[in-house]
Design a protein around this nucleic acid. Structure first.
Length: 259
DNA sequence: ATGTCGACGAATCGTCGA
């Protein structure tokens, strides 16, 4: 079984690339972020023609998340229960799998702009709320996957310039502490369960030839709960779509596991 | 500050967010 995550930076622009990628990579479930479209504009039909069901939670212009899956998605939750949020950043759903249902959580984590800013404070509150809710969610659904654009480079090796960017957004101790708190819930970063090439990144700035120079960050992650960890067989970043014409600034991450 | 995208409103670009 395969689960993937991809920040597409506008599904309106990237839909053809997503459909082409799914045809070449027929994963069982795909988490999308930064749809930048309202739910009434979500292309359910196009995905259905490709053999996929979809559930979405979006808004005009910003944010927006969705799960695309080969099998029906049930028990859908939008945003973090109990956390009042004006933005569309979380969608959770349950997917049938051979070894039992999987709980799939997809998050477009707050960027935070700059340490000390209002947006950074919102990021900290949001991460707190996510942590609290996920603790309950894992207790209810031990077979859980947390995928998405975390907007956190968890360790120095996840950044092209850890010294130069130390303490800046996506690199702060506070953000990294939040990432480790998520791991402390019993979640594992599937990418780091395996030996990986050095300088493996999932995002590259559009500017300054970021991709060509591999000046990137690894901020897109797929975490698995304790119950799933032993079954994980691989996790890889697919850089190919970043070479497309009009690419997203993010590349998809794909996890393979026995479910 | 800059670079580059994408979306928006009201331009035929300026502004915002990433």
């Amino acid at each position: 079984m395969q689960i993937a995550t991809w920040n597409v930076n506008s599904l309106t622009v990237r839909l053809p690339q997503v459909l082409a990628w799914l045809e070449a990579n027929p994963v069982d479930a795909l988490a999308l972020q930064e749809l930048k479209l309202s739910d009434d504009k979500f292309p359910h039909d196009a995905f259905e023609l490709a053999g996929y069901q979809s559930v979405c939670f979006g808004e005009k212009t910003y944010n927006g998340v969705a799960w695309i899956a080969r099998a029906p998605l049930g028990d859908v939750v939008r945003n973090i229960p109990g956390f009042d949020d004006q933005q569309t950043r979380v969608i959770a759903a349950t997917l049938d799998a051979p070894g039992g249902a999987l709980r799939l959580v997809n998050g477009y984590f707050v960027n935070g702009q700059e340490p000390g800013s209002d947006k950074f404070a919102y990021k900290m509150r949001w991460l707190d709320a996510l942590h609290g809710w996920l603790g309950e969610e894992i207790a209810r659904h031990p077979r859980l996957v947390l995928a998405g654009d975390f907007n956190i480079a968890p360790e120095d090796r996840d950044s092209y310039d850890p010294a130069g960017l130390a303490g800046t957004i996506l690199h702060t101790d506070e953000e990294r502490a939040h990432f480790r708190r998520l791991l402390a819930l019993g979640l594992s970063d599937s990418f780091r369960l395996f030996e990986q090439p050095e300088k493996s990144f999932s995002w590259w700035d559009y500017r300054m030839l970021g991709f060509q120079k591999n000046r990137g960050l690894r901020i897109d992650h797929i975490l698995v709960s304790e119950a799933l960890k032993a079954g994980v067989r691989a996790c890889a970043i697919d850089r190919a779509p970043r070479k497309n014409k009009q690419p997203s600034d993010h590349a998809p991450v794909v996890m393979t596991f026995d479910a």
